[in-house]
Design a protein around this nucleic acid. Structure first.
Lengths: 215, 215
DNA sequence: CAGCATCCGCTTTGATACTG
DNA sequence: CAGTATCAAAGCGGATGCTG
């Protein structure tokens, strides 16, 4: 990207991460830290392979990511954020928060990847951290995800758990509306979300229902 | 901009503000709210006039800014952020914070506009709000700026004040280093910064000197 | 003069094909 | 798997011209 040549911190930041796709690459790495080239391609549907290669090179030059050639057993390259790259998390968080209202319009033909749930759900809190941790399996797109409470926080990872406290199945819009606070559980169910198991587990992490550990 | 077509809040946000120049236009409007077309051009050195017009149209369509045709006495168009547009402030703040380390390298031929001081200085706090407010005149680029304490916060506006508690003169790098906490006042002076008046006034707002109201 | 629109050369991006 | 190569299309930058 051609520099803005402005002595302004925001402009300098955009000189580095203002290119098309760049911040989305950082998003992928924030979600699933050690990442192979093909993992990135999968998490960035629509990116051209030459652009991905270009951007990775630029990010490496700017000290945002590192490229590690793994030893023979795996024999692959893994990309990782440097501390400087992880410091971009607040930027992605701010952008994500601002973009939430835009999810409602035109859910048309937009692609969704289950692991993207980690970004908005990572900001949720366990409303009853003194209770035993809960696990919720969320089935909404390419792969099932496990949403678990850990030390009052919420972690998201791919996987299945037959002993999960609850299992949620639904389209990405309904699932996200539930976890972003747009609707309560009943409304989500009326809109096609299917819940199996303990509704209280969902209430533990869903936003501002004031009946925390009810049921 | 072509949409990323991803059902992800951050990607949707970038669909709207991810274009080149777009976030810098928002920066300008965050700093000096009602803005004319030519004011924007001045605050965005290097932008092509057709791009500015394009971006303003897109931002208007997306509900980020409004265009008001002022009544005959002034006979000009003024651009303003909507509440939705002002909600982008955290995005610019996060970008700016991340970009601070980039200011040190290549201060080469980068352009500077004094009113940009408002962004980083707006995050400073008055360390002694119980004392009477202070005013500092900062002369560093195209126009003198007044930095004043108001209710524990710091406001920045263009202007001159012969009765300012202190006057600071210096290049943008030295002035910013001082106010961003890179160096203390003595070091800044050794690097060419000229202070006239009360050093304590500067200490009131400069970051983490633990001698707050000293002298 | 303020607020654009048009034109044109250059750069970036997107899509696909191909390679160590 | 991790890219490079190629090429058409879109976007950008700079200059200039037009209109109230």
């Amino acid at each position: 990207m051609r520099s803005y040549d402005q002595y302004c911190a925001a402009a300098k930041a955009l000189d580095v991460v203002g290119d098309r796709w760049t911040l989305l690459i950082v998003r992928e790495l924030l979600i699933r830290q050690p990442c192979r080239y093909t993992d990135l391609q999968y998490g960035l549907p629509g990116i051209a392979t030459n652009l991905l290669a270009d951007r990775l090179r630029q990010l490496e030059e700017h000290g945002v990511i590192t490229r590690e050639v793994a030893p023979p057993p795996v024999a692959t390259t893994v990309f990782r954020l440097t501390p400087r790259g992880e410091a971009l998390q607040p930027v992605l968080a701010a952008l994500g928060e601002w973009g939430v209202p835009l999810l409602q319009e035109g859910s048309d033909q937009a692609v969704f990847r289950s692991h993207w749930l980690a970004l908005p759900l990572g900001h949720l809190r366990d409303h009853a951290p003194e209770h035993p941790p809960v696990t919720i399996e969320v089935r909404t797109a390419d792969q099932p995800m496990l949403v678990r409470t850990v030390d009052g926080k919420v972690v998201v990872e791919p996987g299945t758990d037959p002993r999960a406290d609850a299992t949620i199945t639904g389209s990405p819009p309904v699932v996200l509306e539930l976890f972003l606070g747009g609707v309560d559980l009943e409304t989500a169910q009326a809109q096609g979300l299917v819940l199996e198991g303990d509704a209280a587990a969902v209430a533990r992490i869903a936003p501002h229902p004031d009946f925390d550990t009810a049921t």
